[in-house]
């Protein structure tokens, strides 16, 4: 059984090495979000349609998250909603049957697989750096240069640790999301190929002759076993849908905690 972990379909665009599979799924994610958002707000009514009600609920939930950010807290809602919608859509489209694209010869699926855009560390690192820049900038805009006083906050020799915090926060944000999604993909891949790698037509024909006494055709038993084996990753796939939601929520909640820590009055 061959593993392709962390391999991508690299295309050279304008002198840059681009992960084409990640780029395509990223654009699909963006297209889904923009399409549904436009569909929801294109025809705003006082009595909302179903889609508009869903979006209004999302906005209400994230408005309640920003309550503890002071009177100016409301303006941090858009980035939280954008991060949440982007991450959850990106996580969920990894569960679509992208393997069917292997039938097209021009897509070099052997060099990398189409999956969630968030299973590429570059995407999650970019999101984490956006969060880092956003909370520092929002702190500086509120408090001016006094924002950097918190580095010396309890006593002066805590400064290196306080500065380390700004490195550790985006690092863990990026790694947590990336590794959770990648681990799910690996688990599905391993379980999906497990039965196929364990059995062979010869072993099945020996089994049919000796144990079953030749009452069933061996190719029939082989195909049934392969089919049942391909059902093995199903529970993990359902769990991955749950993980996709939880990780998007964790990323967003940690972002809101960092922002409210940066804009809090001391």
């Amino acid at each position: 059984m061959e593993f392709h972990i962390g391999q991508h379909w690299i295309v050279n665009l304008f002198g840059l090495n681009v992960h084409m599979d990640t780029l395509i799924t990223l654009w699909i994610t963006m297209a889904i979000i923009i399409f549904f958002a436009l569909l929801a707000v294109g025809n705003i009514k006082l009595i909302p349609s179903k889609l508009q009600a869903v979006f209004e609920n999302i906005v209400t939930i994230f408005l309640s998250l920003t309550k503890d950010m002071g009177s100016e807290g409301k303006k941090h809602t858009p980035i939280l909603i954008a991060l949440f919608l982007f991450i959850i859509t990106g996580n969920l489209i990894g569960q679509l049957p992208w393997k069917l694209l292997n039938f097209f010869p021009f897509i070099k699926a052997t060099e990398g697989e189409f999956a969630s855009p968030t299973n590429d560390i570059n995407v999650t690192a970019a999101l984490a750096i956006i969060v880092l820049i956003y909370y520092i900038v929002s702190g500086v805009r509120l408090k001016g240069i006094g924002y950097f006083k918190h580095y010396f906050q309890p006593v002066w020799f805590m400064t290196p640790f306080n500065m380390l915090e700004d490195v550790v926060r985006p690092l863990t944000l990026a790694l947590r999301l990336f590794a959770n999604i990648l681990a799910g993909e690996i688990l599905i891949m391993v379980l999906g190929g497990l039965i196929a790698s364990l059995i062979s037509p010869e072993a099945i024909s020996v089994f049919c002759q000796n144990t079953l006494g030749g009452i069933l055709p061996s190719s029939w038993v082989y195909n049934i076993t392969l089919f049942l084996g391909s059902l093995l990753p199903l529970p993990i796939m359902f769990f991955e849908i749950f993980v996709a939601f939880i990780q998007a929520l964790v990323f967003t909640l940690l972002t809101s905690a960092y922002i409210s820590g940066a804009v809090a009055k001391h």
Binding site: A179, N180, I246, V250
Partner: peptide, 10 residues
């Protein structure tokens, strides 16, 4: 649980 699970995933 999501945060704890992330430690195992590291």
């Amino acid at each position: 649980a999501g945060l704890i699970e992330a430690c195992a995933i590291y």
